[in-house]
Every structure is written in structure tokens, then in C-alpha cells.
Design a protein around this nucleic acid. Structure first.
Length: 285
DNA sequence: AACGAGTCCTGATCGC
DNA sequence: TGCGATCAGGACTCGT
């Protein structure tokens, strides 16, 4: 399970599940007994079950949000290895299913998450935007498409490397390692460049590349390098269009130079030394 | 306030 | 072949 679900994968799941979840209601919740990232009091589950049918399925950053009539919502984050699946009730339990929501049509929503970095959290709908984890999230990059001046303003006061900055969900929400790496490659920007040294032209290229790569990935149903699936079990196809992520040691599609991998802010990244103007020599420190 | 480091977790991969 | 060590990384907390 290498690919981590990011904004396009969560949006793909949202689109696959929304038509099948709207109008349904939760009858019961089942846990594997092993904790996910956040512990939930039993009383919160009772409140959610006391609510009525699901009336809206939305996404904020990498969070999926199910609003039920009656004022309660369900917040789902897939963490690093989470998969969300809608299956017929009673079908054999896949390994690592740590949460199940039993629906009134006999189906089940299942969270399969080996590493248990994911979370499923009931929350009062009215305070989602001010008090839940959603309150911390930054700009939604596609709603509407983020612009260069907005990114520049969001980065003011920071000197972090642009790659590291892009992964900060309190600035721009939903961008993870795959799409940050791809956007910087397409914008031809050195991932180590401090944000306060990006030119206006850099920001324009980055805003355009980020929007383009995220929109394309949604259109392709996400990236499936190992086993990503939407809520109905379908893989994505954006892996065919990756130009940098996962291609370290292979030739750049633009210029033919060998792509290099190195670390920024504790995370691996891949870049083209020529297109992204990275000097020869040791990298990453 | 910004930011780096530490934490959580297990499947895949590496080194001997 | 087998086994222990290492790596991977999103979001959160904590210390500087």
C-alpha cells in the first residue's frame, strides 16, 4: 500500500459513494477493537445513530464529511493506508477492517486501514467548521481554483522549503507527497527553494500546475500505484500521467536527465536536476 | 509565530 | 532462507 490518499483520491471516493449513501441511515457501528488515530466516546456514536438519513457527502482537504439529518456528521480521514469501501452486509471481512457503519439498505461502509492512522469521528454539524479538525484546514485548492496571489499571501512570513510548505494542510488543504512533487516538477521549481524566494513567475507556474495536476487526477479517478480503489472497488488511472513521483533514477520525460530523489522536511521527494535547476552534489541537508 | 522533532503504525524492503 | 533493522508518511503535539 504505498500510495497515500490525497485530495484527488478522497474526491474520487466521495463521488463514487455519494449517490449510494445519500438517503441511507446508519443502524449500527462496529469496531475491530483496535483504536484508530482518535478515540471516540460511545455517547458520540449514540448521537450519530440517533440522527437520521445521510443528506450530504462532501470533502474538505483529505477529509470526507457525511452530514446526517438531525445535526450530526461523520468525519472520515484515511490517514496513510486507509481505504473506504461500500459492500454488501455480511460479506467476508477483509483484513484490517477497523470500523464498519451498518446501513439501512443492508450494506456496510467499511474502513480498511492496516496502519490505523485514519480516523472516523462523529461531530455536531453546526460546529464542524469552527471546532472540528476541519477548522484548522487552509485554502481548498480547487474551490475555486487557487491563484498565484493567494498562494503568495498564504506563504507570507514563512521561509520554509516550498515542498515542505505545500504539505502544510493549514495553508493549502489536501496536498500530499504525490501531488506536491508533481506540481513542482511541472512548475519547474526546485523543491528546496524557500517560499520567500519564489518569484511572481514561480507562483504563477505553481498555482497553475497545482490546479492542473489535482483536476487531472480527479478526472482520472486518482492514482493507483499499489491498491488505491474508490468506494466501489475501482482503481484510478493517474499513475500513467505521473512525471516525477516514483520515477527516481529514471530519465526525465522533458529533458532526459536522470531524476534524483532526496529528502525535504523528513519526506522523500523526486526532482529533475536540469528542469528544476538543482545543482550537482549532495542533496537534502 | 514559525518550525523542527517526535509520535503513531505495519507492510514492504534491505542487509547480513 | 530467515530474521532483525529500516523505511514510508499525514496530522497532531511539544519544545525552542
Amino acid at each position: 500500500m504505498t500510495e497515500v490518499p490525497e485530495l484527488p483520491e478522497v474526491e474520487t471516493i466521495r463521488r463514487s459513494l455519494a449517490p449510494k449513501l445519500i438517503g441511507r441511515r446508519f443502524l449500527a457501528i462496529r469496531s475491530s477493537g483496535l483504536p484508530l488515530r482518535r478515540r471516540v466516546a460511545g455517547s458520540s456514536w449514540k448521537r450519530l445513530l440517533g440522527a437520521r438519513e445521510i443528506q450530504r457527502v462532501s470533502r474538505r482537504g483529505k477529509y470526507l464529511v457525511l452530514d446526517c439529518r438531525g445535526g450530526w456528521s461523520l468525519l472520515v480521514h484515511l490517514g496513510m493506508s486507509g481505504r473506504l469501501l461500500l459492500v454488501e452486509g455480511g460479506s467476508g471481512l477483509e483484513p484490517h477492517v477497523h470500523w464498519r457503519g451498518l446501513l439501512d439498505d443492508g450494506r456496510e461502509l467499511r474502513l480498511r486501514d492496516p496502519r490505523r492512522f485514519g480516523s472516523v469521528l462523529p461531530w455536531p454539524t453546526a460546529s464542524l467548521q469552527v471546532a472540528s479538525p476541519l477548522a484548522r484546514l487552509g485554502r481548498e485548492p480547487l474551490d475555486p481554483p487557487v491563484t498565484a496571489p493567494e498562494l503568495e499571501a498564504l506563504a507570507r512570513g514563512s521561509r520554509r522549503a516550498i515542498k515542505d510548505w505545500l504539505l502544510d494542510s493549514t495553508r493549502v488543504a489536501g496536498v500530499g507527497n504525490i501531488y506536491a512533487t508533481e506540481a513542482l516538477f511541472r512548475a519547474r521549481i526546485d523543491p528546496r527553494k524557500p517560499v520567500d524566494r519564489l518569484s511572481h513567475a514561480n507562483w504563477r507556474q505553481l498555482a497553475a500546475a497545482l490546479v492542473e495536476v489535482l483536476e487531472s487526477a480527479i478526472e482520472a479517478g486518482g492514482t493507483t500505484l499499489q491498491d488505491f480503489q474508490d468506494g466501489c472497488g475501482r482503481p484510478g488511472t493517474f499513475q500513467r500521467f505521473l512525471q516525477a513521483y516514483g520515477r527516481a533514477g529514471q530519465p526525465c520525460y522533458r529533458c532526459g536527465r536522470i531524476l534524483r530523489s532526496f529528502r525535504i522536511g523528513g519526506r522523500s521527494t523526486v526532482a529533475c536536476p536540469r528542469c528544476q535547476r538543482i545543482p550537482d552534489g549532495p542533496l537534502g541537508l
